[in-house]
C-alpha cells in the first residue's frame, strides 16, 4: 500500500521532470523580463551598469505627471492610443458583417475565392505591408501615376507623409490586413447554425434581411461579445510594428502609440528608465482591464473568457 503510493508519486514527479526544461525556458523568456522593471527605479544610463546606477525611487513615475514637457508628450501618445484603439473597437462588428454577407452568397466558387484572397494579407509582415503601401501610394507610386495620367493632379499627393487622418489610415491598413481573417471565426459559427431556424423564418414569410436580423445575428452575438471583451482587454497594446514601419518625420506626432513611444524613448532617446516606468504602468493597467472584462463576462454570461 505504502510502496504503491510511493511509486505513483515517483511517476508523477518524473513526468514533471520531463517538462521542467521547457518551464525553465518559459520562465526565462516570459517571467524573468519582469525583473527588468527594476530599471524604472534607477537612473540607468548605459554603458554604466545597473549595479552602479543611483537608486531614484519613484522619480520617473513622478516625472510622468510633474514634468510639463513629458506630460504633454504622454497625453498626445495616450490620445493616439485611444484614438486608434477606439476606432478599431468602434468598427469591431465589421468582420461579423463581412461573414454574414459572404455566407449569403450562393456562388460557391466566388465565395471561396473571396475568402482565400481576403485572408492572404493577414500572413504578410508589416514591413511588407509598408512596402506594398509605398509602391501604391508614394509620390512615384501607382495611385499618383494614375491620377496624373487622368489629369486630375499636377503634383503628387503625399499620402504617406501626411500628418492628417493618420489614425484613420492606420485603421484602414489594419482592416485591410485582418478583416478577411477575422471573419473566418464568424463564418464557422454561421455554418453551425441550425438550418431549420431559417426554414421556420421562411415559412413565417421573412425576407433575407429579416432572417439575417432575427436568426443569423443573434446566433453570432456570443462570439462577438467575447471578441469585443478581449479587444477591450488589449486596448493599450497596439503593438509597435505597424506604427514603427509607417512612422516618419511628418506623421510622428499622431502615429506614436504607447508601444511605439516606449520603444522610441529607449532605443531612440536612450531614456531606458522612463520607458520601463511607462511600460510597467501599461502592463499593470492591462492586467486590471483583463480581470475587469473577465469579471464582466462572468456577470453577464456566467462564463469567464480567460
Amino acid at each position: 500500500m505504502h510502496t504503491q503510493a510511493y511509486g505513483r508519486r515517483r511517476v508523477s514527479i518524473r513526468k514533471f521532470l520531463y517538462i521542467l526544461p521547457f518551464m525553465v525556458l518559459l520562465a526565462t523568456f516570459a517571467y524573468y523580463p519582469l525583473y527588468g522593471w527594476v530599471y524604472a527605479f534607477f537612473d540607468y544610463m548605459p554603458p554604466t551598469p545597473l549595479s552602479h546606477s543611483p537608486f531614484v525611487g519613484l522619480k520617473w513615475f513622478r516625472s510622468l505627471v510633474e514634468n510639463p514637457v513629458k506630460v504633454n508628450q504622454l497625453l498626445q501618445v495616450i490620445k493616439n492610443t485611444f484614438g486608434i484603439s477606439g476606432l478599431y473597437l468602434l468598427f469591431s462588428w465589421l468582420p461579423m458583417i463581412f461573414a454574414v454577407f459572404l455566407s449569403e452568397i450562393k456562388a460557391m466558387r466566388f465565395r471561396r475565392i473571396v475568402q482565400t484572397v481576403t485572408t492572404l494579407p493577414n500572413f504578410i509582415s508589416w514591413v511588407l505591408v509598408y512596402s506594398l503601401a509605398f509602391s501604391m501610394f508614394s509620390s512615384e507610386g501607382m495611385v499618383n501615376g494614375l491620377l496624373k495620367q487622368l489629369g486630375l493632379i499636377d503634383s503628387p499627393v503625399l499620402f504617406l507623409q501626411n500628418s492628417e487622418h493618420v489614425w484613420i489610415t492606420m485603421w484602414m491598413w489594419q482592416t485591410w490586413k485582418t478583416l478577411g481573417w477575422a471573419a473566418i471565426l464568424y463564418i464557422a459559427a454561421i455554418t453551425g447554425i441550425d438550418e431549420s431556424l431559417y426554414e421556420a423564418a421562411r415559412v413565417d414569410g421573412a425576407t433575407r434581411m429579416q432572417a439575417i436580423r432575427h436568426v443569423t445575428l443573434p446566433s453570432l452575438l456570443p462570439t462577438y461579445f467575447v471578441l469585443v471583451m478581449l479587444q477591450i482587454a488589449s486596448f493599450l497594446n497596439n503593438g509597435m510594428e505597424q506604427y514603427f514601419v509607417f512612422q516618419n518625420a511628418f506623421n510622428k506626432d499622431s502615429i506614436q502609440v504607447l508601444d511605439l513611444y516606449v520603444y522610441n524613448l529607449a532605443m531612440g532617446g536612450g531614456s531606458y528608465s522612463v520607458s520601463v516606468a511607462i511600460s510597467m504602468l501599461k502592463s499593470l493597467i492591462s492586467v486590471v482591464l483583463l480581470f475587469s472584462v473577465n469579471g464582466l463576462s462572468k456577470l453577464i454570461r456566467g462564463e469567464s473568457i480567460v
Binding site: P33, G36, V276
Partner: peptide
C-alpha cells in the same frame, strides 16, 4: 503558468534589457 504568458508580458524594453 504557461497559458498566462499569452495575456501578460513585461513589455518590450524590459524584455530587451533581459
Amino acid at each position: 503558468f504557461t497559458i498566462l504568458t499569452m495575456f501578460f508580458n513585461a513589455g518590450i524594453i524590459p524584455w530587451y534589457l533581459t
